[in-house]
Design a protein around this nucleic acid. Structure first.
Length: 1088
RNA sequence: GGGCCAUUAGCUCAGUUGGUUAGAGCACAGUCCUGAUAAGACUGGGGUCUGUGGUUCGAGUCCACAAUGGCCCA
C-alpha cells in the first residue's frame, strides 16, 4: 500500500516537512558520504557578503548553483559544496560608518581603527541568519558549516602567499598613475569597481574657456603667428570642459594635428578653435579670418588661468604637488598635438591637467608638462586660490566659473547631462587623479589570460569572445591596493630609512620586502609587535616591525589593504589555507568544473579568479561557467529599495514554494537573458507543472491502492500495449535529451522538455489509459498500465530531482522508498536515469503524434458541426498524403476512433466532395532551378486551375503552365476542406465527419449523457470512487427506453447495483436535469 | 562615444542550415470534455516578427544603419 495522497496539496507545507526530514536524517551529509571516493566534480561557490538581505536574484543564481551539482552528484560524482563568505571591503566599512555617523577617514582614525574594524567584523554576519534561511529553504545544498571566510587569519595568510608569488615574479609594483578615486571613501577604485558605478544623466557644468595667447613666443607656424599678431585684439584659444575644478591644474592645451583650425572674429573677440565645431560652439555670428592645420598651433604659449605658485595669504600653500617638469625650457603652458583630440565634440582644443586624467597624465609625461595637484585626497581644493581653496571639487565648480567670468576668461557656460562614474557604494562622484598605488602587472600575462579563456566554456557563449574576451583584450594592470582599514593588509614592508635618508638603504630609493607567510614574518630578524590573540588585520599588523637586512633600519608595513575582489579571486587557494595546509584538498579541488554567477561578475569574480589562476598556475580556474542575466520587476524595471519594487524571496517561498520558484527561474527564460519577474508567473508554474505532476501521482496512488498494485511483484517487463510502449519510448527519449542538455549546461531546455513530457503523460497517456485502471478484474492489461505509469513516475521524479528537490523527494519516499526497502534513503542518493535506447521507438512516437493530430482535427470538426463528443457518430474520413502516414493509419485507427467517438474511420478516396485544391511551388526545389523566373512561376500558379494541375500531375506525371513544364516533386498540391462544416484540416491532413445521427446513435448518446450526469452526481453527493449505489429515475418514455436498453452499460459505469424507474427513497441524493428538451429526475443512494 | 545582449500576440517565451499558412502557454470570450486534475479539448479575437534600407527568386532568420530597453566599457 502506498500512503494515500491528498490531491489538495500545500507545497510550502510539504517542503517544510521534507526539510525536516533531510535535517533529521542528515541526508545532505549522507549524500556526500555516499559519493566518497567517487570521481570529483568541482563546484566553487562565489562568496556573497552577508551584510544585506538576500534577494530574488540571489535565489536565481543559487538555483542554478544547485541544479548542476545535484545533477552531477546523481551521475555518481562527488561534488563538494563548500560555502563561502565575502567579508572584507568598502561595503562593510560603509555600513559601519553610517552606524557610527562617521564621514571621513580622519574621523575613523580618531574613532580608532581597532574599534572600527571590530565593528566591521560584527556587521559582516548581520544577515547571516537570513542567508542561511533562504539557502536552506530553497533547497540549495551547501556546506555552511565548513564555509571559507575571507577575514579568517588562515584565509588572509593564503592571500599573502599569493602576493608573495607574484612579488617574486616581479609582477607587483608601486605606480604613480591616475586612478579613479573616491574622495569620500578616500581610496582608489579598481577599474572593475568603477564599472559598477556609472550613472547616465549626470548633470554637470559645461564651460568654454578662453586661454589668452602670449605674443612673441617661440612656437607656432609662421602663418599662425602672423595671423595672431595681425589680429586687432588679443587672441584666445577656446577650450571646453565639464570639470571646471580641474582648470587650476591646467598646464597645457592639446589640438589635433590633422584637423583644420580657424581664427574667427565674433562679438569683437578673436578666437581659435576647430573649424568643424564653430557652429556648435559659438553663440553668435562669426567671421572666419584664417584657417590652418592643427599642427601649426603646436608650440604656441598661453597665459595660465591661475598661478599655483603664488603666495597668497590665507590660502593653502603650496598645492599638494607642484612639479615643474621643464628644466631647459622655462616657458610653460604650451599648445601640443595629440591623436586623442577629437573634433566630434567640444572645440577641438582639449585642456590638459596632468594630475586629473589618464590621458592628461600620459600626455604630461610625454610633453614634459608641469604637474599641478590642486586636490587633497578628500577631494578638497588645496592651493593659493582665494574663494575656493578648501571647497570640495564639485562645489568649487561654480566659484571657479564665476571667477573666470569676472576676469573675462569665460566664453560660455551651461549645463550638460552625460555619463559619469560614481563610487559604487557611496555614490560620491569619482575624481581621477594621479597618486601612488600598488599594481599587479596583469598586462604581462595578457596573452595567457586570453589563451586560457579559450579553454573555458561560457554559457551563454557570446560572453567568451564578447564581454569577457573584450575585457581581457583591453586588460590594464590591476590596481589592487586600497587605502582603507577593513581588508586583508598588504604584506609589504618598507625600510623606514629609505624615505628618510634618500638613498641610504641598499642604494635603492625604496627598499621593500614581501613576506609570504606569518612564519616567514616571524623569522625576520628583530621581529616584534604582534599581539595575541592573533589577528592579522589592521591596526595590529601595523605594529609589526623587524630589522632591514640591508641597513638594519626598521621595516614597517605599508599602510594599504588589498582589494576585496582579490580576496574572492583567491578562494581556490585560500579556502584551503594552501599551501600552509591541505595541499591535497587544494589539488583535488582545482580547477573548478563549474561556477555560476550573474553577468556583473565578468569584471568581478569571474575576472579575479581567472587572473589569479593564470598568474599563479598559468591555467584557467574554471571549465564551465553559467553567466546569468539580471532580474527586473514585472514592468521591466530594475528592482531597488528606492522604487519599492523588490520582491522578497520569503513571500514567494511561503505562498508558492521553493520548487515552483526554482522551476520558474530555470524554465521561464534563457539563463543569460534579462528576465522580468512576477509572482503570477510562479503561480502559473504551480498550476501548469507542479499540479499536473502531483495529480498524476495522486491518481496513480489512488488506484494502485484500490487494486493493491505492488511494483515489486507486478512489474511488467514486456509491454504489448502500444500506448504503454509509446509512453516508455517517450520517457527514454526524454532521458536521453535531458542528459544531453544538462551535460551541456542547459538546464532550461532540459526542464522545458520535462514539462512537455509531464503534459503528455497526464493528458494523453493517463487520460487514454483511465478505463484500464477502472476495470474490475486484475488482468494483465491493468497491471501493465500500473507498471508503466509507475515506471514513468519514478523515472520522472529522478529526472526532476535536481530541479525541484522537494516534490521529487516527497514522491520518491512514497512510491519507491515506500515499496522497496532496498531503495535509497533519499531520491538524491539515487543514480540519475540513463536511457534504454532500445525502448525508443521513433515510429511509434510518430504514430502517436499523428493520432493526436487526427483527434485534434476530429474534435475541431465536431466543434464546427456543433456536435458534442459524447454523441457517437457513424463515420469519419481522413485524408493522409504521405505514405508513412497512410501506413501508420492502421496502427492508430482504434485510438482515434475512441478519441473522437466515431464508429468507423476510413481513409478517404474520393476527395472531390469535401475538398478543394491549391497548388503551390515547392520552393526549395524550384528556387535553385529557376532563380529569377520564380516570380513569374508563382504568378502563373496562382492564376492556374489547381484541380486541373493536380489531375495532370497525377495522370501525366507533369503539368505545363506558360513556358514551363513542372514535375510533381516541384509542386505541392494542397487540399483543404471545402466550406463544409464538418471538415477540419491542417496542411495535408484532413478529417471529415459524417454528422448524420441515426436514432440508434442518438440513444447511445443519451446513455452516455446519463452516465455523465450520474457520475457528476456521485461526486456531488460525496461518494467515494469505489462506493456502490442504487439508482432511481423518473423520465419520459423515450429516455426510459434508453435507460432500459443501456441498463447494463449504465450500471457498470456508475457502479449501480440497481437502476429502476420510480421516485427516490429516504436519504437519496437527487437532481433534476434537462436532457434533449425533456426533464428527468435522477437519484443515487449509497448501498449498505 | 564604443562593445555585448534583447526586441516575435495584452503577458512569458519557441522558431532548427534563409523556403510555402510565424507557433506554444497564460489572459479574454464562447462551446465542449471530465469518476485524478486548480487540469484538458476546440473555436474566436489578438502579429506591418521594433523600424529603415540592402543581399536573394524568396528574409522573423543573413548584412548595414537606426530606435527602445538592459548590461558593460570610455
Amino acid at each position: 500500500m502506498f500512503k494515500p495522497v491528498n490531491s489538495n496539496v500545500n507545497f510550502p507545507e510539504m517542503e517544510t516537512k521534507i526539510l525536516g526530514f533531510w535535517k533529521e536524517k542528515g541526508i545532505f551529509e549522507k549524500v556526500a558520504e555516499s559519493r566518497k571516493g567517487a570521481p570529483e566534480y568541482i563546484f566553487y561557490e562565489g562568496p556573497p557578503t552577508a551584510n544585506g538581505n538576500p534577494g530574488i536574484h540571489h535565489v536565481l543564481s543559487r538555483t542554478f548553483k544547485d541544479v548542476i551539482p545535484r545533477y552531477w552528484t546523481m551521475r555518481g560524482f562527488h561534488v563538494p559544496r563548500k560555502a563561502g563568505w565575502d567579508t572584507h571591503g568598502l561595503p562593510v566599512e560603509l555600513e559601519v560608518e553610517k552606524e557610527l555617523g562617521l564621514s571621513s577617514k580622519t574621523e575613523i582614525e580618531k574613532y580608532g581603527i581597532a574599534e572600527f574594524n571590530e565593528r566591521c567584523r560584527k556587521s559582516v554576519f548581520r544577515y547571516l541568519k537570513e542567508w542561511e534561511f533562504v539557502t536552506e529553504r530553497i533547497g540549495f545544498w551547501l556546506d555552511l558549516k565548513n564555509a571559507y571566510i575571507t577575514m579568517d587569519n588562515s584565509y588572509m595568510e593564503s592571500c599573502w602567499w599569493i602576493i608573495k608569488q607574484l612579488w617574486d615574479k616581479g609582477l607587483v609594483y608601486q605606480g604613480y598613475k591616475v586612478t579613479p578615486h573616491c574622495p569620500r571613501c578616500g581610496t582608489s577604485l579598481s577599474s572593475h569597481e568603477v564599472a559598477l558605478g556609472y550613472k547616465d544623466d549626470t548633470d554637470d557644468p559645461s564651460v568654454h574657456i578662453k586661454f589668452k595667447i602670449v605674443n612673441g613666443g617661440t612656437g607656432g607656424s609662421r602663418e599662425v603667428k602672423s595671423a595672431v599678431n595681425m589680429a586687432p585684439g588679443p587672441v584666445y584659444l577656446l577650450a571646453w570642459t565639464t570639470t571646471p575644478w580641474t582648470l587650476p591644474g591646467n598646464t597645457g592645451l592639446a589640438v589635433s594635428p590633422e584637423a583644420e583650425y580657424a581664427l574667427v572674429e565674433t562679438g569683437g573677440e578673436y578666437l581659435i578653435m576647430a573649424r568643424a565645431l564653430l557652429d556648435s560652439s559659438l553663440t553668435g555670428e562669426y567671421t572666419v579670418l584664417n584657417t590652418f592645420p592643427g599642427a601649426g598651433l603646436q608650440g604656441l604659449r598661453y597665459e595660465p588661468l591661475f598661478d599655483p605658485w603664488a603666495d597668497i595669504p590665507g590660502t593653502s600653500k603650496p598645492c599638494l604637488a607642484v612639479r615643474r617638469q621643464q628644466t631647459a625650457d622655462k616657458e610653460t603652458n604650451p599648445v601640443i598635438t595629440g591623436d586623442f583630440v577629437s573634433t566630434d565634440d567640444g572645440t577641438g582644443i582639449v585642456h590638459i591637467a596632468p594630475a586629473f586624467g589618464e590621458i592628461d597624465f600620459e600626455t604630461g609625461k610625454t610633453h614634459n608638462l608641469d604637474l599641478v595637484e590642486t586636490l587633497d585626497l578628500q577631494g578638497k581644493v588645496c592651493g593659493p586660490f582665494p574663494g575656493f581653496d578648501g571647497l570640495f571639487a564639485k562645489a568649487a565648480d561654480p566659484v571657479i566659473t564665476e571667477d573666470l567670468r569676472s576676469r573675462g576668461l569665460l566664453y560660455r557656460s551651461g549645463r550638460i547631462t552625460h555619463t559619469y562614474p560614481f563610487c559604487w557604494r557611496c555614490s560620491t562622484p569619482l575624481l581621477y587623479y594621479a597618486k601612488s598605488s600598488w599594481y599587479i602587472r596583469t598586462t604581462a600575462i595578457k596573452d595567457r589570460l586570453i589563451a586560457c579563456n579559450r579553454e573555458i566554456n561560457w554559457f551563454p557563449e557570446h560572453i567568451k569572445q564578447g564581454r569577457f574576451g573584450d575585457w581581457l583584450e583591453n586588460n590594464v594592470d590591476w590596481a589592487f591596493s586600497r587605502e582603507r582599514y577593513w581588508g586583508t593588509p598588504l604584506n609589504v614592508w618598507r625600510c623606514e630609512r629609505s624615505a628618510e635618508h634618500g638613498n641610504a638603504c641598499g642604494g635603492a630609493p625604496d627598499y621593500f620586502e614581501c613576506p609570504g607567510s606569518l612564519g616567514e614574518l616571524r623569522d625576520k630578524p628583530g621581529f616584534s609587535g604582534l599581539p595575541e590573540p592573533l589577528d592579522l588585520h589592521r591596526p595590529f599588523i601595523d605594529g609589526v616591525t623587524y630589522y632591514c637586512p640591508e641597513c638594519g633600519g626598521i621595516m614597517r608595513r605599508v599602510p594599504e589593504v588589498i582589494d576585496c575582489w582579490f580576496d574572492s579571486g583567491a578562494m581556490p587557494v585560500a579556502q584551503w589555507h594552501y599551501p600552509m595546509e591541505n595541499a591535497d584538498n587544494f589539488k583535488k579541488n582545482f580547477p573548478a568544473d563549474f561556477i555560476c554567477e550573474a553577468v556583473d561578475q565578468t569584471r568581478g569574480w569571474f575576472y579575479s579568479l581567472h587572473a589569479l589562476s593564470t598568474l599563479l598556475f598559468d591555467r584557467p580556474c574554471y571549465k564551465n561557467v553559467i553567466c546569468l542575466g539580471h532580474i527586473l520587476d514585472a514592468k521591466g524595471e530594475k528592482m531597488s529599495k528606492a522604487k519599492g519594487n523588490v520582491i522578497v524571496p520569503a513571500t514567494v517561498l511561503n505562498s508558492q514554494g521553493a520548487d515552483a520558484l526554482r522551476w520558474y527561474l530555470v524554465t521561464a527564460a534563457p539563463p543569460g537573458n534579462v528576465r522580468r519577474f512576477s509572482t503570477e508567473q510562479v503561480t502559473e508554474v504551480v498550476r501548469k507543472f507542479m499540479l499536473t505532476l502531483w495529480n498524476s501521482y495522486s491518481f496513480f496512488v489512488t488506484y494502485a491502492n484500490i487494486d493493491n498494485f505492488d511494483p515489486a511483484v507486478n512489474r511488467v517487463r514486456n509491454l504489448d500495449v502500444s500506448l504503454d510502449r509509446w509512453i516508455v519510448s517517450e520517457l527514454n527519449r526524454l532521458v536521453v535529451k535531458v542528459n544531453e542538455e544538462l551535460e551541456s549546461y542547459d538546464p532550461t531546455t532540459a526542464a522545458r522538455r520535462i514539462e512537455e513530457f509531464v503534459d503528455r503523460l497526464s493528458n494523453w497517456y493517463i487520460r487514454r489509459s483511465r478505463r484500464r485502471f477502472w476495470k474490475s478484474e486484475n488482468d494483465a492489461d491493468k497491471m501493465a498500465a500500473y507498471s508503466t505509469l509507475y515506471q514513468c513516475l519514478v523515472t520522472l521524479i529522478k529526472l526532476i530531482a535536481p530541479f525541484t528537490p522537494f516534490i521529487a523527494e516527497e514522491i520518491y519516499q512514497n512510491l519507491e522508498r515506500g515499496s522497496d526497502p532496498a531503495s535509497m534513503e533519499s531520491v538524491h542518493m539515487e543514480a540519475y536515469p540513463s536511457a534504454d535506447v532500445s525502448l525508443i521507438d521513433e515510429q511509434l512516437n510518430a504514430d502517436t503524434e499523428l493520432a493526436m493530430k487526427l483527434s485534434s482535427l476530429g474534435r475541431a470538426a465536431r466543434s464546427k458541426a456543433n456536435t458534442r463528443v459524447r454523441q457517437p457518430l457513424a463515420r469519419a474520413l481522413c485524408r493522409l498524403r504521405r505514405e508513412e502516414e497512410r501506413q501508420a493509419f492502421a496502427r492508430i485507427k482504434e485510438q482515434v476512433m475512441d478519441e473522437i467517438n466515431v464508429k468507423d474511420l476510413e481513409i478517404m478516396n474520393e476527395e472531390g466532395a469535401v475538398l478543394e485544391y491549391e497548388v503551390k511551388p515547392n520552393l526549395p526545389v524550384l528556387g535553385p532551378k529557376y532563380g529569377i523566373k520564380m516570380g513569374e512561376i508563382t504568378r502563373l500558379l496562382k492564376a492556374a486551375d489547381a484541380r486541373k494541375i493536380a489531375w495532370d500531375l497525377r495522370t501525366r506525371g507533369e503539368a505545363s503552365m506558360g513556358d514551363f513544364t513542372l514535375l510533381p516533386q516541384e509542386l505541392q498540391v494542397l487540399t483543404r476542406g471545402k466550406g463544409g462544416y464538418a471538415v477540419a484540416a491542417d496542411g495535408d491532413i484532413i478529417v471529415a465527419l459524417d454528422t448524420v445521427i441515426s436514432p440508434e446513435l442518438a440513444g447511445e448518446g443519451t446513455a452516455r449523457e446519463l452516465v455523465h450526469l450520474l457520475q457528476t452526481m456521485r461526486r456531488s453527493a460525496g461518494f467515494d470512487v469505489t462506493d456502490h449505489i442504487n439508482t432511481c429515475y423518473s423520465a419520459d418514455s423515450e429516455t426510459g427506453r434508453v435507460m432500459e436498453q443501456y441498463a447494463e452499460y449504465i450500471k457498470q459505469e456508475t457502479l449501480s447495483l440497481s437502476l429502476v424507474a420510480g421516485t427516490a427513497g429516504e436519504g437519496a441524493y437527487s437532481e433534476t436535469h434537462r436532457l434533449g428538451g425533456v426533464e428527468i429526475t435522477l437519484a443515487v443512494k449509497k448501498t449498505g
